[in-house]
Design a protein around this nucleic acid. Structure first.
Length: 851
RNA sequence: GCCGGAGUGGCGGAACUGGCAGACGCGCGGGAUUCAAAAUCCCGUCCUGGCAACAGGGUGUGGGUUCGAGUCCCACCUCCGGCACCA
């Protein structure tokens, strides 16, 4: 045991204050307090993995915690909650392998990660902790699903409405009515191609398929249409796009969402099929190139393909389609660069010139975009050009490029040109500029009912079901007469049943299908029904968790409207960039439904968004078990304490940047905290250091203190935590060199350090004689006058090179500065007798003498 | 291929709307303290030449604008991230 009993014992101190905060409920957030402005700081909640917390997690959590603690000191009523994204594949896979219930695994993992999270001293209101796999939580996830199921989208008002307000055409039979309603629900069933692995008897997610075979086991995977639940997110595409204008998000994330939604404006054009009473619609963004359409391509899955194919070509076409079905999306694109396709034997009639063009089938046309068929204009589309070249199809140029040497090549059909220009080979439209031509031809088509302006989005409807056990059951019944009914809200939650084993049913159904006494239901009237056995995807619970935090224990509503009105929107949302598209888009989508139905009052859920960067291993590589470079937060906390861990993660570099871990770097901030400790505490005795007295600080100290208070506050506001810490280091370095430590300076230092390193700040604050926690102490003010220097050193340049330095008073006028600068010996020497042509004086910076 | 972001000492990184490049930390070198070590403290540390004063060079590369460029403009190189036949 060391003789120095007063050392910085972070272990004891951190335990003590974590207990204190817990027992005093220091960070309990009070709802609807009108005397203070509110501030809602949210972390992206983690999946409770068996690996436990990763050093990447505390990075974002520390940043948000600093803001939360800072805002409390600035007088805000802060909501800072935490919870668990508890449904997920790993627990289910563990269950399949070991038989342990996912619920058991998940609880165990949550307990461990909660312990780890608490050990870092974040100021969460733990009374609001939630877990998405908890029936009291997923009851409301199911409730929102029923809102989707029981709503339709009113196109004219561009908003969701309750399904009972849907106008139904008069002359429909009961069956037709039911179908009409089903077709308008925002949650609906459809057959869509999914990754089906016959060997595993299950459907795989895209990331589980590598090179056409399953990631686990390497079994073949085919695209197979299967019945899935879908959410009609495409109806909200326009609003999801438009409202991106309202959020304060990184430009890159907004762009990502913008591109993901992928709006394009063009026209749909009707081509008759020669010799058939059929017509094929195509979508194009370049209706001005219609005269250059020399063939047509249909996707292998196109409804009319089988109809138009001639007997002579049927064998080839069917073989091609069969092959295409075995390709994953990835094979269709990346791996198979070379275009493939076969002729169907059929011809379409180009509506602008009545020319017959051959119809081909190729998988470079996607069934899921536009109409599933295209008019091919090889002269002005790279993909069509490649295809036409390979299969010797004609190339007719119809756009003359503005100028440049490639004009002739384009006109000869030897070069593909995709830009704007003037129309050629286009009959009466010749000479029109592209933009004008687009308008005219669209009108021309519309008048003849051969086409119309059309908008398409890359965004697809969301496949909202998984053939899994460990997810929210869809609250749906399939009745004997073939009807699909939502459960009534009183019957929620629909809990997951216990199952004998977690293996998939093998039929493509979830393990729930094997639980017959759960699946089979007798309705009140005595008729039978089957429960939906699909469960929701992992994204579901995270789509609305920020709302449940507002009122986590409410068993009558998902949340109290008054609390929603008070707390929303989330003022600051911090999390990883990997959720840039899906999670953020999906929750925006859910939020908009809830907005339309009047359950929330803001259009957008998250006002400001920050993405923390990834933390790499000490070797600069991505952390992974196989590389053996994973840093365990528990070890860091045990070795240096939570305050050092927090401080180091913030000191590493800008929050958004990707940066490598360095254990020696942790030691650096640890030394900083020890130095601070010794400024305040006598290490030998453990008493308050005798140098800490009530003296007035000297001027240099006072100026530095004021500058530091200003810088730390400003830096927190702009999330520049690394530079804030560096400023505090400068102040502590300065103080540690002084013989006396003015109490007033030390106290203010502790207050501005508290958001970063709260345990040591609380401990020293208490040792200075304050009985209460500093969590709600007002943030120190600074004196603007004391931030400015009294005397300033200026560099004196001659022709841009520094030759001398002068010290002037802060108020010195330009003329005086010039005189001082010119008087210096070194300057005189550097000017070598020449006349000063121009003298530039930048007050507080430098003087430049041009000769 | 397309779209973002970034290139600054041995390392992580600072540098406000163009104004003293390298703050702060790590590492390294030297010293103090110590029987010795750990810890701590002090000094030094962009590169080149010089014992030194000092001189010259320097923010991925090449140009440009400017009294002055890490910062602005043009062209290019490299790395990272995302998307990937969306007609």
């Amino acid at each position: 045991m060391s003789a120095k009993s007063g050392r910085y014992d972070f272990g004891e101190i951190e335990k003590k204050w974590q207990r204190h905060w817990h027992e005093h409920k220091t960070f309990k957030a009070s709802d609807c307090v009108d005397s203070k402005p509110k501030y809602y700081v949210l972390d992206m909640f983690p999946y409770p993995s068996g690996q436990g917390l990763h050093v990447g997690h505390p990075e974002g959590y520390t940043a948000s915690d600093i803001v939360a603690r800072y805002k409390r000191m600035k007088g805000f009523n802060v909501l800072h909650p935490f919870g668990w994204d508890a449904f997920g594949l790993p627990a289910e896979q563990h269950a399949i392998a070991t038989g342990t219930a996912p619920d058991t695994t998940t609880r165990k993992n949550i307990d461990n990660m909660r312990r780890q999270t608490k050990s870092l001293g974040f100021s969460y209101d733990w009374d609001r902790e939630i877990a998405t796999a908890d029936p009291d939580y997923y009851r409301w996830t199911q409730w929102i699903f029923l809102k989707f199921f029981n709503s339709y989208f009113d196109e004219t008002e561009q908003k969701a409405k309750p399904i009972d307000q849907l106008p139904i055409p008069e002359d429909l039979s009961e069956d037709e009515k039911r179908k009409y309603v089903a077709d308008h629900r925002l949650a609906y069933e459809a057959d869509v191609p999914v990754n089906w692995c016959p060997a595993l008897g299950t459907v795989l997610a895209n990331e589980e398929v590598v090179g056409g075979v399953s990631e686990r086991g390497g079994h073949p995977v085919v695209r197979k249409p299967m019945r899935q639940w879908m959410l009609r997110i495409t109806k909200f595409a326009e609003r999801l796009l438009a409202d991106l204008e309202e959020v304060d998000w990184p430009e890159s994330i907004r762009k990502l969402q913008f591109d993901w939604i992928g709006k394009s404006i063009g026209a749909e054009v009707n081509f008759k099929v020669d010799g058939f009473d059929e017509e094929i619609w195509v979508f194009t963004t370049r209706p001005d190139t219609l005269f250059g359409a020399t063939y047509m391509v249909m996707a292998p899955e196109h409804r009319l393909l089988d109809v138009v194919t001639t007997d002579e070509h049927r064998g080839q076409v069917e073989e091609y389609c069969r092959l295409a079905a075995t390709k994953s999306d990835l094979d269709r694109t990346d791996l198979a660069k070379e275009k493939t396709g076969v002729f169907t034997g059929a011809y379409a009639v180009n509506p602008v010139n009545d020319e017959k063009i051959p119809i081909w089938v190729s998988d470079y046309v996607l069934i899921s975009y536009g109409t599933g068929a295209i008019m091919a204009v090889p002269a002005h589309d790279e993909r069509d050009f490649e295809f036409a070249t390979k299969f010797n199809l004609p190339i007719v140029p119809v756009v003359e490029p503005p100028d440049g040497e490639e004009v002739e090549l384009v006109k000869q059909g030897k070069l593909c040109f995709v830009g704007d220009g003037r129309a050629i080979n286009s009959g009466q439209f010749d000479g029109l500029p592209t933009i004008e031509f687009k308008k005219q031809i669209t009108d021309w088509l519309a008048q003849r009912r051969l086409g119309a302006e059309a908008v398409n989005y890359k965004l697809r409807d969301w496949i909202f079901s998984r053939q899994r056990y460990w997810g929210e059951p869809l609250p749906i019944l399939h009745t004997e007469n073939g009807d699909v009914a939502g459960l009534s809200e009183q019957d929620l939650p629909l809990k997951l049943p216990e199952v004998a084993d977690y293996k998939p049913a093998g039929t493509g159904e979830s393990p729930l299908a094997k639980v017959s006494d759960w699946v089979n239901v007798t309705l009140s009237g005595g008729s039978l029904a089957r429960r939906e056995t699909n469960t929701m995807p992992q994204w579901a619970g995270s789509c609305w968790y920020y709302l449940r935090y507002l009122d986590p224990n409410n068993d009558r509503q998902g949340w109290d409207p008054a609390k929603e009105k008070y707390w929303m929107p989330v003022d600051l949302y911090i999390g990883g960039a990997e959720h840039a598209v899906l999670h953020l888009l999906y929750s925006r989508f859910w939020h908009k439904l809830l907005y339309d139905l009047g359950y929330v009052t803001t259009k957008e859920p998250f006002k400001k968004l920050i993405n923390q960067g990834m933390i790499l291993g000490e070797d600069g590589q991505k952390m992974s078990k196989s590389r053996g470079n994973v840093v365990n937060p528990d070890k860091v906390v045990a070795g240096y304490g939570a305050d050092s861990m927090r401080l180091y993660e913030m000191f590493m570099g800008p929050l958004e940047a990707m940066k490598p871990w360095s254990t020696q770097g942790v030691e650096g901030v640890y030394r900083f905290l020890q130095r601070l400790w010794r400024v305040v505490v006598d290490e030998e005795t453990g008493e308050l250091a005798p140098q800490v007295t009530d003296v007035q600080p000297d001027e240099a100290t006072l100026r530095l203190l004021n500058q530091t208070i200003k810088k730390v506050g400003d830096d927190i506001e702009r999330f520049g935590f690394n530079t804030a810490i560096s400023a505090m280091m400068i102040l502590v370095n300065h103080l540690s060199k002084q013989d006396v430590q003015p109490r007033s300076v030390v106290e203010k230092l502790l207050l501005i350090l508290a958001p970063f390193a709260p345990h040591i700040a609380e401990e020293l604050w208490q040792r200075l004689g304050y009985p209460e926690s500093l969590a709600y102490e007002p943030w120190p003010e600074y004196d603007e006058e004391l931030v400015k220097e009294r005397e300033i050193e200026l560099a004196v340049q001659v022709n841009g090179k520094i030759k001398d330095r002068i010290v002037v008073s802060a108020g010195a006028d330009e003329e005086a500065i010039k005189q001082r600068a010119l008087a210096g010996e070194k300057v005189v020497a550097a000017m070598a007798g020449k006349e000063a042509k121009k003298i530039i004086v930048i007050k507080s910076r430098l003087v430049n003498i041009v000769v």
